[in-house]
Design a protein around this nucleic acid. Structure first.
Length: 646
DNA sequence: AAAATGTTGCTGTAT
DNA sequence: GCAACATTTT
């Protein structure tokens, strides 16, 4: 029974396979006839439950599970959907597939390598992209007099442009209008980046979607063979899809039934090009579709929803939304004021500990933060009190410096043209810095075989060469290569990271364990780049009774009995960095809305009223006033929460 | 001249 | 925790 699943603390009832616990609107959505459908659902109105029920219904009606694909926003929610459907349908549910858009496209690319022309490509992450742009900037910067973007800004501009399929001007403006004079240079450098990727056989995150989308549009044969595998495509969090993702979905319209579920008030990925026209213009773009609405909230009590309703009502945008609690009345939300970060964090940890002593489980609690670094104080307090937790958001295991170092030789073996990996690997060795590494890489990339390449390292570092040779000999399976790499590189890495080496080394057995699930280095690295697993998540013991510490962006769809929304302070909501545009401020409002709609029973909002980081850092005095003025809780009504000063 | 080491500042959300 | 910058060592 689903009860035993206890999937990340969700209510077990969601796995039950009959539709009797659905309300009328949910049942109509779940049991809709074939055809395209858009389901609009407010926070907590049972989106996930409806997707589960839809899958159950389709499979029960005789659709083979493998012809259904669920596109979710995170690996976590994808896995949960599959787990619940399998739990309720047993063997008939086996074969249901769910993943992120990126993992979906990568599957297509790997299953039809010739169709997409991406054989032996390596997937690169954002940091790798930044490295490439850095190298390109280094070569061109001296002649220009205009202000050029940083490498990181170039990645943003380039990626935004591709995700929204907009003009360079729009993409640059979105980053910073002050960069417009450099437009010509930016376009030129983006072209060089594109060529460089091609040479080195790299696929960045956007390529993964674009390669598949473009091919499906251009080639009818490929389109038919790929798209006709699926009868039903379900898309969760549809409000956060962007034009590139829509481009990818449209070829499926003639082969499969599209079932998209979303809430425009929860659109919080505008910075990644999310476009709620995908929701608002769905009917226009897909005329033969039906639209369904779910508007009864089953998650929270009315007092909690009142806060969220108030917040949206303050917006200039008309969301046409007032959440009504099916559960009725409950605890009044609390609004707690603290003098500083430390007091705030400490109080939350103490409060959770006290509740645990009274018999609550750790996993009844979720702490929501806007930014990863806000989490650090509370993390320290949780550790101090021995409270088990996982932190979701922030740096992923495969993004940490020491793991990237460890994997660099494996990346070289998987793709000898991988310049970034070569550079990283070479610089691990004593006596090799930026300049020598560049010289060696130059020589190495001219070679056609990995053996010649290793020869080309030359006498600069016999150790670097010997080590790479031994790792190459261990080659596959990847777990073995990882183990050999750990053995051979430990000394070097220890010297590099001396201070926190004892912490970092603990990650290596984890990496080896993750590698065991894969048969090739490429597949292993790719898997964890596309569906990254958090360092803290990976370190967890299996039991699962832990406090959830999570960024709001990662918390979409999650719920807990007791939620602490941290640092709802001036300068943080909206973030002082969002002050540039009204659209960005409204997106910030939705971020807070997502946070406030997570709790089932108790909402605890904490903040610091004294000038906090965001305000202090606003550039001018005028900016500081603007930040304080835009603060979302500026006119917060007394009767919506019990306010305390601690 | 390049590498190594030390210091300071700042940090947006993520596939 | 990390990147950019500054300083010391090889």
């Amino acid at each position: 029974m689903a009860k035993d699943q206890h999937v990340s603390g969700r209510r077990a009832v969601q796995g039950s396979h009959d539709t009797s616990d659905l309300n009328l609107a949910q049942r109509r959505a779940a049991m809709a006839d074939d055809g395209h459908a858009l389901v609009l659902a407010g926070a907590g109105c049972g989106k996930t439950k409806t997707i589960d029920a839809r899958c159950n219904h389709l499979i029960s009606e005789g659709v083979p599970a493998h012809q259904i694909y669920v596109l979710a926003f995170t690996r976590r929610s994808a896995e949960e959907i599959v787990a619940r459907v399998e739990a309720s349908l047993g063997s008939r549910g086996k074969g249901l597939q769910a993943s992120t858009f990126h993992a979906f496209c990568m599957k297509m690319i790997r299953h039809h390598p010739s169709a997409f022309g991406c054989y032996r490509f390596s997937v690169i992450d954002r940091e790798d992209q930044v490295d490439i742009f850095k190298a390109l900037l280094g070569r061109t910067s001296k002649t220009t007099t205009v202000i050029m973007p940083t490498a990181a800004q170039l990645v943003d501009i380039y990626s935004f442009g591709r995700n929204t399929r907009c003009t360079p001007t729009t993409a640059i403006e979105n980053e910073d209008a002050a960069l417009l004079p450099a437009k010509k240079h930016i376009i030129a450098i983006c072209r060089q980046y594109r060529d460089r990727k091609q040479q080195r056989k790299y696929l960045d995150y956007d390529d993964i979607l674009e390669v598949v989308g473009t091919r499906l549009h251009e080639d009818a044969g490929v389109r038919k063979s790929v798209c006709s595998q699926f009868k039903h495509i379900l898309v969760d969090e549809f409000q956060d899809t962007n034009p590139l993702q829509w481009h990818l979905l449209t070829p499926f319209l003639e082969f499969a039934n599209l079932f998209c579920v979303g809430d425009d008030a929860q659109s919080i990925y505008g910075f990644r090009g999310a476009d709620f026209n995908n929701v608002h213009r769905f009917k226009e773009r897909v005329p033969d579709s039906t639209t369904l609405k779910l508007n009864k909230n089953y998650r929270s009590t009315q007092e909690i929803l009142d806060v969220s309703n108030w917040l949206l009502a303050q917006s200039s945008i008309d969301y046409d939304k007032r959440l009504v609690a099916a559960r009725g009345s409950g605890h009044k939300p609390r609004l707690l004021n603290f003098a500083g970060d430390w007091q705030e964090a400490n109080w939350i940890a103490a409060d959770i500990a006290a509740r645990h002593r009274k018999g609550r489980t750790w996993s009844d609690h979720m702490i929501l933060v806007r930014t990863a670094y806000t989490a650090r104080a509370v993390e320290a307090c949780l550790i101090e009190r021995n409270i088990p937790y996982i932190f979701i958001g922030g740096t992923k295991l495969l993004e940490t410096a020491h793991v990237k170092d460890l994997l660099s030789p494996l990346r070289i073996i998987a793709n000898p043209a991988d310049e970034i990996a070569w550079t990283r690997y070479l610089r691990l060795w004593p006596g090799i810095g930026r300049v020598k590494a560049a010289a060696i890489v130059e020589r190495v990339l001219g070679k056609t075989t990995i053996e010649d390449a290793m020869e080309a390292i030359g006498a600069s570092s016999p150790n670097a060469r010997a080590t790479l040779q031994q790792i190459l000999a261990a080659d596959e399976p990847p777990a073995r290569a990882v183990r050999v790499a750990v053995e051979l590189l430990s000394k070097t890495l220890e010297a590099q990271y001396k201070k926190d080496w004892d912490q970092r080394r603990l990650d290596f057995p984890l990496v080896e364990k993750l590698a065991q699930k894969h048969t090739s280095i490429m597949a292993f690295i790719e898997h964890y780049l596309l569906d990254p697993m958090n360092a803290s998540e990976t370190r967890q013991s299996s039991n699962g009774d832990v406090v959830f510490l999570i960024t709001v962006h990662s918390a979409k769809g999650a719920e807990r009995k007791v939620c602490y929304v941290m640092n709802v302070s001036p300068g943080a909501y909206p973030s002082s960095r969002a002050m540039g545009s009204g659209d960005q401020i409204e997106e910030e409002r939705r971020v807070l809305y997502v946070a406030l709609t997570r709790p089932q029973d108790e909402l605890i909002i904490t903040r610091k009223l004294l000038p906090s980081f965001g305000i202090v850092n606003a550039a001018s005095e005028g900016d500081q006033v603007a930040v304080a003025d835009a603060y979302f809780l500026k006119n917060f009504p007394d009767d919506l929460a019990d306010e305390e000063f601690l």
